[in-house]
Design a protein around this nucleic acid. Structure first.
Lengths: 349, 349
DNA sequence: TGTGGCGGTGCAAACGATTGCTTCTACGCC
DNA sequence: GGCGTAGAAGCAATCGTTTGCACCGCCACA
């Protein structure tokens, strides 16, 4: 309860100089002091309940052993596993994560970023990258180590860990095609994000490569990855193209919003309309109907991002790497053969 | 990219002493310098892209403007909203959260705790409190400001923000009774946690006050708040008391585990068996069946905890408060009148 | 004209660790 | 017996702020 004990308290109790105490306490420099003094210092430290002052150490060594993690919103089920992965990897090396939510608000992101810079984080892991992002320029200018996770950016001078978005959407789309769907719509993510733009391109090209049409009216752009955005986009899409029998959504939440609209309009899913999501968010298997989706290894995304950052922190070779992790199609109950195909193939039986 | 600029860089450029620059930069002491010098300093700072070094400041002022947040597991959907609430409140006052997961592992919790102490957090918000918790004793001893959230402890010398667990379970139980259920079981949380012990007591007493039985074989204790624990407890419970027509679970995840067992045994829910959860986790309305549960205001829990901590940090009156937030029963599709009551009342019609 | 006060600045000492350098001791070897 | 050397420990500077105190004009008032 009294003032926390300092290094010189420990030194005094052990009867040595504080420099000696410092060396004894630090495993890396312990070999510089004799075994017996080291022992004495360690005992003294334990007795006093000494915990080194990381702030003082940070000032001297110019490292905070802290990294900033910038995400849009922790309440989006996508991010907790990522953060968890980051944390686990960092903690093993003695790093701690400073968490910052931005709410997709540029102003707020700027404030949070400054807070991290003020606290002299050793590096930043960022899940909010837009394809063209002013903050990244500033981070580069300040010489900050940055690793991007989940979303990528146009600049090539940052390490990044992402899923293979292209492949993921291709798998989902081919799954639909394989079931017999021909008129397939797409709920696209925000075009300012790498995930949004890559996924819609993949959707289009996959259809083309199967000689199917992807007319503009089959694609609706959502302005955010949220249920609400998914729902309103779905309304527009269905009004415009009622002939659709399947929808590939760029994200689980969008798909969930679409399901709400199906229910609201009495469209049976998957009987009259199939839908796939993207991410395989927690409990996606418990929804009604259980969602067919593309599983993204979120925890590993975070863990790899953490590892990449650690690598940069350990030896500042500043060799930027871009890592892409494979997605996996998880087929559940929200996809089925199209209604017409269904009747024409099952009637003969 | 070059070395970050410091206060004396700013001072030199403005042609003043660094002490003057410091005073000019800090709004609280700005009145000590003349308006014109202050202006000059601010301009110089902006031009240099000066960001104060929080580490140096922290060393001098003995405050890190950082608080530790200790939770069991960020991937449990219960916690993101809490963390988010904490963060939002703290950010407004210039505080940042250091996140620490414990995985309910005492060893790991200890390590994380030390990491926070080393970083000299100004306070700690803890969601992992056990009813009797050694770490809390140590925190108290070190003079740390601690606020408990969600779970409470036996000691009365910490502030805490919780839901009214007693009331929540009472509401769920009375809902079952109101539907006509007489043989109601309970999936209880770990007795070492305040939530576990309070909820089971409430369950028993609520039944008693309605002159219903709560024999020991109607109650099964789960060793964790997880789907798996809920599932295996449900198997035991149903084997022992097949006559049950309803189950009050101490937690949504436990309820989800129970639903899995219902499905596995072909027990229709809610027709043959009703169930309630606790927490109203995100997407609980999307499950099949949509879960009747007790809504806990998680975000507000976190926000209030943040406020309580801030209060303690601002004026160290060390007046501990305990705050209890009201839960709310959310009736959805997982509860219905009991099967036998159903038939006996609807047959006559 | 002397004195008191005050607004504005500068000076320098902290805060608690790390670390290059110096100092000291003891020992081995020629 | 003297010198070189290595191992162990001490000295003191340093990191970038904040802040109590000293200082210095200047103005007002007596």
């Amino acid at each position: 309860m009294s003032r926390a004990s300092t290094l010189s308290d420990v030194a005094r109790r052990a009867g040595v100089h504080q420099a000696t105490a410092s060396r004894a306490l630090n495993p890396a420099s312990r070999h510089l002091v004799s075994k017996s003094t080291a022992e004495r210092v360690l005992v003294a430290a334990r007795e006093l309940g000494y915990v080194p002052n990381g702030i003082a150490r940070g000032l001297r060594t110019n490292r905070s052993h802290t990294v900033g993690v910038i995400i849009p919103d922790l309440m989006n089920p996508l991010f907790p596993p990522i953060v968890r992965g980051i944390e686990d990897v960092l903690a093993d090396e003695g790093y701690t994560a400073l968490l910052a939510n931005t709410d997709n608000d540029e102003q707020r992101e700027r404030t949070q970023f400054e807070a991290l810079v003020t606290r002299r984080v050793d590096g930043i892991i960022m899940a909010t990258a837009r394809r063209d992002h002013p903050l990244l320029a500033e981070a580069a200018h300040r010489g900050l180590k940055v690793v991007l996770v989940n979303r990528d950016t146009e600049r090539a001078d940052f390490s990044a860990v992402t899923t293979d978005d292209w492949l993921g959407v291709a798998m989902a789309t081919e799954h639909m095609i394989g079931l017999g769907h021909q008129r397939i719509g797409h709920l696209s993510g925000p075009p300012g994000l790498s995930t949004g733009s890559t996924r819609v391109r993949s959707f289009r090209e996959t259809l083309h490569s199967h000689r199917l049409d992807a007319p503009p009216e089959y694609i609706e752009v959502c302005d955010a990855y949220s249920e609400a955005a998914g729902a309103s986009a779905t309304r527009l899409l269905l009004d415009r193209a009622p002939e659709l029998t399947a929808i590939v959504a760029a994200n689980d939440l969008l798909a969930l919003g679409a399901c709400d609209v199906f229910r609201e309009r009495g469209i049976a899913c998957p009987e009259r309309m199939s839908i796939t999501g993207f991410n395989d968010m927690p409990f996606a298997d418990k929804f009604h109907p259980a969602l067919t989706t593309v599983r993204v290894p979120h925890y590993d995304l975070g863990a790899e991002a953490g590892r990449l950052l650690l690598e940069q922190l350990m030896q500042p070779t500043h060799l930027t790497k871009r890592l892409s992790l494979p997605p996996k199609l998880i087929v559940r109950a929200s996809t089925a053969p199209p209604y017409d195909a269904n009747t024409s193939t099952s009637n003969p039986a």
